[in-house]
């Protein structure tokens, strides 16, 4: 287990006396794609800010690679290179004059020599598929999808072991969504990077995750495989979430008496299942 949240609680709202995170425990394995889902205000963003010690818990702790990251002499600076956060709004993360300079910022801060910095920046930009002719344009002139790629490259240049993506596809069109999510999948498949994805898209979560953690009002509501979580349609709807549209279609068929499997998350699998199980 690479990352363990151990009875994590976080309280910032003194007026409300409510816990933003309330006794949350789970573990994430190396090389997994884990999704964290939950309604707005369920504590997802606060939770991921604990993963690299940007937030300090009121109670409980996080273990990374077997070590308590909130211990007094734990090297949290080194941790921030290992656990990279990509925030939702690229405009909050990008600031340099050129794409290339922006991606160099992280590794420069790690104190690497210039050559190594430039090599890493180049590799990271290539990895996410940013074309050479964009290297020296201002990041602010790029489209939303391109900006997202550059912010991911900026984090990748620090060679993280874990990449945390907060709503990476919000506001993107279907083509860009797929492109960004495929980058994450490729990083896991080719480089063994553990991916933690925060998302409101049930379809994306179902298609890409090995494991899903569901948050509700600061508490962990569900924790399991894609099948285990999306079986709980009613629980998810109670928590302001939903099931993927294909799953809903299969459930409706099932309700009408067709003996189809309802653990289906995309159109192609739905078509295959319908052709196999329903006699026409």
């Amino acid at each position: 287990m690479l990352l363990i949240a151990d009875h994590l609680s976080y309280k910032y709202d003194k007026l409300n006396k409510k816990n933003v995170l309330d006794d949350v425990s789970f573990s994430i394995n190396k090389g997994e794609i884990v999704s964290i889902i939950g309604h707005t205000g369920s504590g997802k963003s606060t939770l991921i800010e604990h993963f690299n010690a940007l937030n300090t818990p009121t109670e409980g702790t996080i273990y990374y690679d077997g070590k308590d990251i909130f211990e007094k002499d734990y090297d949290r600076k080194a941790l921030r290179a290992k656990v990279g956060l990509v925030f939702q709004y690229p405009d909050h993360q990008l600031f340099e004059e050129t794409v290339y300079k922006d991606v160099c910022f992280g590794p420069t801060n790690l104190g690497l020599d210039k050559k190594e910095v430039e090599l890493r920046a180049y590799e990271a930009l290539k990895k996410v598929g940013v074309e050479d002719d964009l290297f020296f344009t201002s990041p602010f002139e790029l489209s939303g999808g391109q900006k997202k790629k550059v912010t991911i490259a900026g984090v990748l240049a620090m060679k993280p072991e874990v990449l945390v993506l907060d709503e990476p596809t919000a506001g993107l069109d279907p083509k860009w969504r797929e492109e960004i999510l495929n980058i994450a999948k490729r990083l896991r498949d080719e480089d063994g990077v553990t991916i933690i994805l925060v998302s409101h898209s049930m379809e994306d979560v179902a298609r890409y995750s090995d494991h899903i953690i569901v948050m509700d009002h600061g508490k962990k509501l569900l924790d399991g495989t894609v099948d285990e979580v999306f079986e709980q349609a009613e629980v998810l709807r109670e928590a302001s979430l939903d099931i993927p549209e294909s799953t809903a279609i299969m459930r409706l068929l099932r309700k009408e008496g067709y003996m189809v499997n309802t653990a289906i998350y995309d159109a192609d699998s739905a078509v295959r299942e319908i052709r196999q199980k329903i006699r026409f």
Binding site: D173, P244, E245, S246, A248, I249, L252, V271, R275
Partner: peptide, 29 residues
């Protein structure tokens, strides 16, 4: 580069697989 509603897509794919589905299908129902 756009999608269609999931029921529409499944309906179209079922039609392409040879089933007599009248297109387009818009809703789950």
């Amino acid at each position: 580069g756009l999608t269609v509603p999931e029921a529409t897509l499944i309906g179209k794919k079922l039609y392409d697989s040879g089933l007599p589905i009248s297109l387009p299908v818009l809703t789950k129902e």
